[in-house]
Computed example of a mutant assay.
Amino acid sequence: MVNALVLAGSPNDGPLKDCSPARYEALISIGGKTMVEYVLDALKATGKINRIVVVGPTEELKKLLPGDITVVTAGRDLMGNLLEGLKYLPGAQRVLMATCDIPMITTQAIDNFLDLCSNREADLYYPVIPRREVEKNYPLTRRTYVSFKEGQYTGGNLFLFNPAVVEGCMRQGQRLVDARKSPLRLGCMLGLTFLLKFLLHRVTLKEAEAHASGLLGVKGAVVISNYPEVGVDVDKPSDLELVMEKLGI
């Protein structure tokens, strides 16, 4: 069993603000249910989650969510929200972190990710999804892909990690998170040699895993998930339209 932490504190002040009057992206309604509720329903349906903590607008979330879910006030940025949430999960050995903007996530996708992680020993597990799997199931979606020697992949929105290593890699972790949708920025952070190989599409997933682990000072593991729902998030109007179409709304 692992504990889950859902980040739901992003204000709705970006591209989605014209699609919904909700003050926070987590509270954008899709077919009468908010985005964060879709994520929580998938988490609760697994048999592998113990406690769930949601970091976001406490007033709205406490009215919306059942009492067995702990709601925590959001901080100023992603890493700050992560630390706030972990305060309510003392002693946790492993925490599954999810963003609130993946309403297509399924229990099967979550279970599969956790099963894949259980096959390796690491401090941080990060999923990547092959481009072919995304486009096979969501041909109209536009995602950021990174080219590796094995093929093209997009990053996921689930993370499994050991809370004990978080504070030690906070600064670099925030930089990696900020650069996750810019392949060139990611390459630059990992050094010139790596960048040159990256530009030639000669970097393997194993090499990327090793470089990221060294940068963060932790043992990281790249996990290949064939569930595109792990990586199909909603951050622009076309994403919202796609989700509504898939859900028949």
Rank of each mutant, 00 (worst) to 15 (best):
S213A: 01
Y227T: 03
V218M: 03
L195Q: 07
K197P: 02
G191H: 11
L216H: 08
V222W: 02
G191Y: 07
L200D: 00
G214M: 08
G214L: 00
L190D: 10
L199C: 12
G231T: 01
Y227S: 01
G231H: 09
S225Q: 04
E209T: 01
F194R: 01
M189V: 07
L186H: 02
H211F: 15
S182I: 03
E207V: 05
L186V: 01
G187T: 01
L199W: 10
H211E: 15
T193S: 13
I224Q: 09
A208I: 09
L215M: 14
K181P: 01
G220M: 14
V203A: 03
G217I: 00
A221N: 02
L192H: 07
V222L: 11
L186G: 04
G187H: 07
I224F: 06
L215H: 15
L200K: 15
M189E: 11
V230A: 00
R185K: 13
L192D: 09
A221L: 06
L200Y: 08
L196T: 12
A210T: 11
M189K: 01
L215W: 12
V222D: 04
K219D: 12
V203E: 03
I224T: 07
R180G: 03
L184R: 06
S213V: 04
L196Q: 09
V222R: 04
N226A: 13
L184F: 13
L200T: 11
R202T: 10
A210M: 13
L190P: 07
K219H: 12
A210K: 14
S213G: 09
H201N: 15
L205E: 01
L192W: 14
G217T: 06
F198T: 01
L199D: 12
L196H: 06
K206L: 07
S213K: 05
F194N: 09
A212Q: 14
A208W: 10
Y227M: 00
L199K: 07
G231S: 08
G214N: 13
I224M: 00
K206W: 02
R180T: 05
C188K: 15
Y227W: 09
E207Q: 12
R180Q: 04
V223E: 12
K197F: 11
K206R: 14
L195H: 06
G231K: 06
M189G: 06
L199A: 14
A208V: 09
L200R: 15
E229W: 00
V222E: 05
V218L: 10
L199H: 09
A210H: 12
G217W: 11
R202F: 06
L205G: 03
G187V: 04
A221Q: 10
T193G: 15
K206D: 12
E207W: 02
P183C: 09
G187C: 10
G214Y: 11
K181Y: 14
C188Q: 14
G214I: 08
C188N: 14
P183R: 01
L216C: 09
R202S: 12
M189N: 05
P228V: 00
G191I: 04
V230G: 10
A210Y: 03
K219Q: 14
L184S: 01
K219W: 07
R185A: 14
L205S: 05
R202H: 11
K181S: 14
F198M: 10
L205T: 11
G214W: 00
A221C: 08
V218P: 02
